[in-house]
Design a protein around this nucleic acid. Structure first.
Length: 518
RNA sequence: GACUCCGUAGCUCAAUCGGCAGAGCAGGGGACUUUUAAUCCCAAGGUUUUGGGUUCGAUUCCCAACGGAGUCACCA
């Protein structure tokens, strides 16, 4: 039915769902002229014999005097009209190739159409022999060409020049807002942006391989959850119409993954998206990618050792080295990393021993005494975490484990033996950023209930970070959960670190932006 | 959510004290049979984000809205 409707629309009438710019009007006119000339601007099929890189390699490998015939496909990035001959650059994912097109070779019409009806951004296919120009550039001597896809809107292309093998661009597409909103255009004209996401893909697959190689089972757990938990964060809420049910987008995978240990799996992990309804910053995006794993019979020390190996391995497989540069600082990711207890770290960097201040009001006063921030009514542990964030975190450039966290902000972690105030938990920091969080997981269902209840009391009633008690999780734990160590890490932040990015938006293909009318 | 800065042609950027909105690239017409940011000639291209205000006159000053960047707040 829809097809019939389309068929009834005369070809001259375009859907003017946008206001074409004068440049776009010109191209729409070219589109009409192509159709008049019997050329389909969007043909069904392409025939490619070589990528541009393969064509160049084949030419270089061929014996002197032996013709290398190739058909390449790609996007027109540059056209230099010399009269009866034309030079053009086509780009594909493998690289670029210069086309050399002479009127005598492609005929009057083929020559005229190439010059008059093609634009930068169009996809074309060209067949010919590889050769080297007088200037020394390996090129394709075109005998036949075909349009593969007409571009209506001009890409924000920049002039380019090769200097010592480096591509230098002039007036590159630089408007950050438009680059994020139109990532397709950003990727199309800024090849180094494509490289960033290739690096990110290598990172994710390296992490996955590392987990798989260490006996972990990859699983998928619900994103839409009737209860949220496993972290202190405000959730996004949504609604299932048919079931008449309020649902939350997950803020962590934790509680669902640990249920699987009850089920008999000993090592599980998940790489996926979490959603937190909070502020946006260079290290926060409303949706972000998390790696979580849980391993039976491990404690947080085992997790620490595993973490060091994992990050070093991931860096090596992504970049070929464990020594990276982040914001002009050299960081060595190789194990072993520095280990520092929370108490020592704060003593060292904030010059406060929080054990001297056993309750929240006393600690808050001490924090104010050193010029720190202490939000009124904050629990003791939250104040300590605040000290960590304000005084310690920015200084932790080399990879560092901070261990033994306050119990009252860690309801899912097991206590440090003989220490009622601390739990076996660590976070690790690299480049001044918190990268991940882990603990010896609490597996005592009665203790877990007490912790949840303590937390309910600690956080004020309207605090949206206050997690509801997950009774089903407690039921699972009552069946018996093996002792285990668990881990969560922000994958985007690791990608940011490894690619030396400015902000998380640089490693997210489609970072969240406010809605804006086109 | 608060504060500061920014928004000019398809892209990158100018515009003096408030006085006719300009350039390079891209695009159009033309010349040129191995160019390399090709070059040369000609012509064109604008609701200065939007809406108000002040003024004889606003890209410029004021207010508001929208969007972005940054800082803070928020963020086990």
């Amino acid at each position: 039915m829809r097809l019939c409707v389309f068929a009834l629309i005369p070809s001259e009438e375009y859907d003017m769902s946008w206001q074409p710019s004068p440049l776009e009007e010109q191209r729409l006119e070219k589109l009409g002229r192509l159709r008049e000339a019997g050329i389909d601007p969007y043909p069904l099929r392409a025939e490619r014999s070589h990528t541009t890189a393969a064509a160049v390699a084949a030419f270089e490998a061929a014996p002197e005097g032996e013709a290398v015939v190739a058909t390449v496909c790609g996007r027109l990035m540059s056209i230099r009209d010399m009269g009866k001959s034309v030079f053009a650059d086509v780009a594909d994912e493998s690289g670029r190739l210069q086309l050399f097109l002479r009127r005598d070779d492609v005929g009057e019409e083929g020559h005229a159409h190439f010059k008059k009806l093609l634009d930068l951004g169009d996809f074309v296919q060209a067949t010919g022999e590889m050769f080297r120009t007088r200037a020394g550039e390996i090129s394709l001597h075109v005998r036949a060409w075909q349009l593969l896809s007409k571009a209506i809107s001009p890409l924000p292309v920049a002039k380019e020049q090769e200097v010592d093998g480096q591509l230098v661009r002039y007036s590159a597409f630089a408007d950050l807002e438009e680059r994020y909103r139109q990532r397709y255009a950003d990727l199309a004209v800024n090849p180094e942006v494509r490289d960033i996401f290739r690096a990110r893909a290598r990172l994710v697959s390296a992490l996955r391989r590392f987990m798989d190689d260490n006996g972990f089972l990859e699983v998928e757990t619900p994103i839409l959850q009737p209860l949220y938990g496993g972290a202190a964060a405000r959730p996004f809420t949504t609604y299932h119409n048919q079931l008449k049910q309020e649902l939350f987008l997950r803020i962590s995978f934790e509680l669902y993954l640990k249920r699987l240990l009850v089920g008999g799996y000993e090592r599980v992990y998940e790489i996926g998206r979490d959603f937190r309804n909070e502020g946006v910053s260079f290290k926060h995006n409303p949706e972000f990618t998390q790696l979580e794993f849980y391993a039976a019979y491990w404690d947080y020390r085992d997790v620490m050792a595993f973490t060091e190996r994992m990050i070093a391995t991931a860096a090596r497989e992504t970049l070929g080295t464990t020594t990276i540069t982040f914001r002009d600082q050299t960081i060595d990711l190789a194990a072993p990393w520095q280990r520092l207890t929370m108490r020592d770290a704060i003593r060292q960097f904030a010059e406060i021993d929080y054990m001297d201040y056993p309750d929240a009001p006393a600690l808050a006063a001490a924090i104010k005494g050193i010029g720190g921030e202490a939000p009124p009514g904050a629990p003791w542990g939250k104040l300590i975490d605040g000290l960590l964030g304000d005084f310690v975190e920015p200084r932790l450039i080399q990879p560092t484990f901070i261990l033994d966290y306050p119990r009252d902000i860690s309801p899912l972690a097991k206590g440090v033996p003989g220490d009622p105030l601390h739990v076996e938990r660590f976070e690790f920091f690299i480049g001044g950023m918190e990268m991940g969080n882990a603990f010896t997981e609490l597996n005592d269902p009665l203790e877990q209930r007490r912790r949840f209840e303590e937390l309910q009391a600690t956080f004020t009633k309207d605090d949206e970070e206050r997690n509801p008690i997950d009774e089903d999780y407690l039921r699972a734990m009552r069946y018996g959960m093996p002792p285990n160590g668990g881990f969560g890490m922000g994958v985007d932040r690791l990608a940011l670190l490894l690619t030396d990015g400015r902000t998380l938006r640089d490693v997210l293909l489609y970072p969240h932006l406010r809605d804006k009318e086109m």
